[in-house]
Design a binder for these strands. Structure first.
Length: 424
RNA sequence: GCGGCCAUGGUGUAGGGGUAACACAGCAGAUUGUGGUUCUGUUGUCACGGGUUCGAUUCCCGUUGGCCGCCCCA
C-alpha cells in the first residue's frame, strides 16, 4: 500500500456514517433541548491559547500537542480540546461577560499526539458544551443531567457518573500541603510513578492503580474534607440538586482531572463496557479560566464527550442500522432507453425521490443485482418495446410485483407513497 | 515516552526455505430483457528496507503500521 492514513487517524467510511450521524444528531438534539447553541471555532489556534489554559505541567501540553510553525514562523497548534478555543472565541467576540449567560456546544475533531490504542486516536472527535456566567450549583447539576439525558437518548447503559470537588485556588493549596504531608513518609514504599507525581503534582497520586499504592491512597486525605466553606456549600447544594433530579452518581474523592483549569465540580462518566480507556465524558467547572485568558472574572462549566468511545459501545450493542435510502432504481436496455431513463432519473430527483442508475452500461441482470444490493424499493425497467409504448415496468423489489406505468405517470405515482426511503 | 503480541487477495483465515490454500464478498458468464439460491471462471509484487541462502512470502535485523497494556485522557 503506497499511502495510508496517518498513524492514529481513521477514515469514517460510508457504512459507518449512519451511526455517526445518529450520535451527532442525538448530541445536537439534547444540547438544543437545553438551549445550547452551536459554536464552531478553528481547528488550530495560536499555541499560547492552549499552553496558558491547559497548563504547562499537564501531559497534553508537555507531550501531546500537534504544534507547528506556519510560514511566517508563528507557532500554531491543532486543538487538543475545545474549551480553550471556545473561551478565546467568546472573549474575542464579546460573548462572555459576567452579566450575560452564554451556553454553547461544539462538535468536531481534536488532536493529540499519543500512542494509539483501544479508544484512543490521534485525531478523535468530541462533542461538548460550555456555559459561562453562572456559579450557581444548579447549573452544575443541569450540565450533568444533560450528559445523562444524552446517554439515555443514545441507549447507553451500565454507565457510572463520578463526581468530586477539586476546590478552588483558595483552598486547594492547603489540601496539596496536606497530601504532601501525608505521603511524605509513605511515598518511598510506593511505585516510581507515584514518586515522580509526589514532586510534580501530588493530586495525581490519587489516580494510581498500582495495587501496592492503593492501601496508602485509601487513607489519604480527601479534597472534600479540605474544601473551604464556600466550596463545601457549592458541592453540597449541587449534590442536593442532583438528588432532586434523581440522577445516580458516585462521589469519588479520588477523581482528579488532568487539566489544570478545573475548579470545584469535576465529573466523569465511565462505561463498564470499554477497556482501559473507559471515560466517555469528562468535565467540570473552570471559574478562573476566563480571567486567566484575559477576560473579566466569569465562572464557567462544561464537559466533553468522546464520540469514538460512544461509537465503540454502540457497535457492541449492535445498533448498526443500515437502511438504504434509494427509492427508485432505473434500469435500461440499449442506448435510447438509457437516454430516456437518465431523463426520468433527474425528474425523480427533482421531485425529491432518491434515485440511482447504472453508470457502467451493464446488463439488465447486473442492474437488477445492483438495485437489489442497494435495497432499492422499486426498479423501473425500460427496454426497446417500452420505448415505443412510452410506458415501462415498475417492479416492487420486496414483493416482486410488477406492473406497467407510463413514463409520464411514474413520478406522480411515487410522490403519493413517498418513495424516498424516509421513515413513514 | 515505555512494554507485550502481530503484519498473507476487498474481508476473515491456513500454510511453510523452492514463486501460496480455504471461505465469504466483488466482477463476468451459465438459450443473449429481470435481483436475493446453485454452478463455472476471475481477483495477491504474502507491509516496506536490508541480511543469511543456490533460492526467502517462509529464518534474522531494522522501519512503518495495527492490536493490547502502562502513562494520561475523550
Amino acid at each position: 500500500m503506497k499511502y495510508a492514513a496517518p498513524r492514529g487517524t481513521k477514515d469514517i467510511l460510508p457504512d459507518d456514517s449512519p451511526l455517526w450521524q445518529f450520535i451527532e444528531g442525538a448530541c445536537r438534539e439534547t444540547f438544543e433541548l437545553f438551549n445550547y447553541r452551536e459554536i464552531r471555532t478553528p481547528i488550530f489556534e495560536a499555541t499560547d491559547v492552549f499552553t496558558r489554559s491547559i497548563g504547562d505541567s499537564t501531559d497534553i501540553v508537555k507531550k501531546e500537542m500537534y504544534t507547528f510553525p506556519d510560514r511566517k514562523g508563528r507557532s500554531l497548534t491543532l486543538r487538543p480540546e475545545a474549551t480553550a478555543s471556545v473561551v478565546r472565541a467568546g472573549l474575542e467576540n464579546n460573548l462572555i461577560s459576567p452579566d450575560n449567560l452564554l451556553k454553547v456546544y461544539y462538535l468536531g475533531p481534536m488532536f493529540r499526539y499519543e500512542r494509539p490504542q483501544a479508544g484512543r486516536q490521534r485525531q478523535f472527535h468530541q462533542a461538548g458544551v460550555e456555559a459561562f456566567g453562572s456559579n450557581d450549583p444548579l447549573l452544575d447539576a443541569e450540565v450533568i443531567q444533560m450528559a445523562v439525558n444524552l446517554f439515555q437518548a443514545l441507549g447507553l447503559k451500565e454507565l457510572e457518573v463520578d463526581i468530586n470537588s477539586v476546590g478552588c485556588k483558595k483552598c486547594r493549596p492547603a489540601y496539596l500541603e496536606a497530601l504532601k504531608k501525608y505521603f511524605q513518609e509513605n511515598v518511598k514504599h510506593m511505585c516510581k510513578d507515584c514518586l515522580a507525581r509526589f514532586e510534580i503534582n501530588p493530586l495525581r497520586i490519587l489516580d494510581c492503580k498500582e495495587e501496592p499504592c492503593q492501601k496508602y491512597i485509601a487513607k489519604a486525605p480527601a479534597m472534600v474534607d479540605h474544601l473551604d466553606a464556600e466550596c463545601k456549600e457549592h458541592f453540597k447544594r449541587m449534590v442536593g440538586w442532583l438528588d432532586g433530579l434523581e440522577i445516580k452518581y458516585k462521589i469519588n474523592d479520588r477523581l482528579v482531572r488532568g487539566l489544570d483549569y478545573y475548579t470545584r465540580t469535576a465529573f466523569e462518566v465511565v462505561s463498564k463496557q470499554l477497556g482501559a480507556q473507559n471515560a466517555v465524558c469528562g468535565g467540570g467547572r473552570y471559574d478562573d479560566l476566563v480571567e486567566e485568558m484575559g477576560g473579566k472574572s466569569v465562572p464557567a462549566i462544561g464537559f466533553a464527550i468522546g464520540l469514538e468511545r460512544i461509537m465503540e459501545i454502540l457497535r457492541k450493542l449492535n445498533v448498526e442500522s443500515r437502511a438504504s435510502n434509494v427509492g427508485l432504481y432505473i434500469a435500461t436496455i440499449g442506448d435510447e432507453a438509457r437516454k430516456v431513463g437518465f431523463d426520468l432519473l433527474s425528474k425523480a430527483r427533482d421531485a425529491g425521490i432518491s434515485a440511482d442508475f447504472d453508470y457502467q452500461g451493464r446488463s439488465l441482470k447486473a442492474q437488477m443485482k445492483a438495485a437489489d444490493r442497494l435495497k432499492a424499493e422499486y426498479v423501473y425497467i425500460i427496454g426497446e418495446e417500452e420505448l415505443k409504448k412510452r410506458s415501462a415496468i415498475l417492479k416492487n423489489m420486496e414483493t416482486a410485483d410488477q406492473h406497467e406505468i407510463a413514463f409520464d405517470e411514474l413520478i406522480d405515482n411515487f410522490s403519493g407513497e413517498c418513495g424516498c426511503g424516509c421513515e413513514h
